[in-house]
Amino acid sequence: MLTLEALSFAVHGKVLLSSMTSIIPDNALTCLIGANGAGKTTLLRILTGELQATSGRFLIDHTDARSLSQSQIAHHFSIIPQDVQPPPHLTVLELVALGRFHPYGALWWRLSHRDHDIVDACLNLCQVDQLSERRVDQLSGGEQQRAWLAFGLAQEKRFLLLDETLGGLDVLAKQSFFKLLKQIASEGKGIVLTTHDLELVADYADRVVVLSHGRITYEGPPNAHLHNFLTSNGRQ
């Protein structure tokens, strides 16, 4: 469980996140929604330790993240950033196998039998096992996202953070991706997704956190609030 307690972040005097208090549970698909610049990506960067909150605190279970190094924080999260692009030569299998990368002894690092089993399981779960020998950059957008998802899952971390990874996908591909995320979350993974696809969020998210100008304006189950949000803000 992740807990935000009056978390704020400012840079050069400009407040990007203001006094955020929230709980992000394990075993749930949590969607962060809000207009561009609302603070979604900044919040993810704080969760991964890339940025430090200027006030307030963020707890991983009951441990204050300020007492942890970035690499210790990284043990809890795998992240798929916005607009991530693989090197042009990489196959799906190679990408997912890199999820098992370990920095210590990296010169001699090889996949163990257990690593192979995990990689195979993630390829299967994300339905890219048939594409494992294909180059990632030659796949369709939906297939690429599934490959990246498998890469994130192969890291076997408790939380998976996806930062607007669905851009450019058609409706069916997005729907299928949300279904998959919901399934993975129900099997014990905490997933945090920033997105603008409000209808799919309404259908699939377990929790929704709405951000506006760096503040949380709503958190909870999606349906009731999203209806109001859609009608008051229009589709984003």
Binding site: A74, S78, I79, P86, P87, L98, F101, P103
Partner: peptide, 16 residues
């Protein structure tokens, strides 16, 4: 090997 995935992903994998 993992720097090719971009700095954020590489950092997340511990590759500094």
């Amino acid at each position: 090997n993992v720097l090719g995935l971009g700095d954020r992903v590489a950092a997340n994998l511990g590759a500094e």
